[in-house]
């Protein structure tokens, strides 16, 4: 799992009352609360949405969403009619459109997706609705690189098993 919440939790090594060091998030390389953006339920965006920070959408977006280096979360109220490209996509709401992620797509229980998903890893919770195709092409896997068949498997066209027919 992403453990994103842990990653964004502020460091608590500073004693109470002391001023935290004012180091910009960009210099630490770790996302902070300021690096996460929420689009609320009432927000409607039509067009192209891109950015360089994690984003949570609870509103409506039509068009294209591109967060190539970041995590996109489509909240339970989110309604997306768009092509989505991100590092990781977590879906709790509705998506009509194709989703491409360089790391992972996670369809939660309340998710409804109509479109094609391309990602090295795809997790689908029970109860999620999905219609479309799932392409989990892993890096370095070539056609024919499938796991070997079990010993009891036989080539297609081989004689029938001895079970009742």
């Amino acid at each position: 799992m992403f453990k994103r919440d842990e990653a964004v939790r502020p460091q608590t090594t500073t004693p109470p009352g002391a001023q935290p060091p004012s180091v910009p998030a960009s210099t630490t390389g770790r996302p902070t609360e300021r690096d996460r953006v929420n689009l609320g339920k009432s927000v409607i965006i039509k067009g192209e949405l891109s950015g360089s920070e994690d984003l949570t959408i609870e509103g409506t977006v039509e068009g294209k969403i591109e967060l190539r280096q970041h995590v996109l979360t489509i909240g339970p109220n989110g309604k997306i009619k768009a092509q989505v490209v991100a590092k990781a996509v977590i879906v709790q709401g509705e998506v009509h459109g194709n989703i491409t992620a360089t790391e992972k797509v996670d369809l939660r229980e309340s998710a409804s997706v109509d479109g094609d998903v391309v990602a090295p890893r795809v997790a689908i919770s029970e109860g999620a609705h999905f219609r479309g195709s799932i392409d989990m092409q892993k890096a370095g896997v070539k056609p024919g690189d499938t796991k070997p068949a079990s010993p009891d498997m036989k080539p297609a066209g081989a004689p029938e098993p001895t079970a009742t027919r």
Partner: peptide, 8 residues
């Protein structure tokens, strides 16, 4: 198992 593309 098959590194396949799956349509639902």
């Amino acid at each position: 198992r098959l590194a396949c593309k799956l349509y639902i």
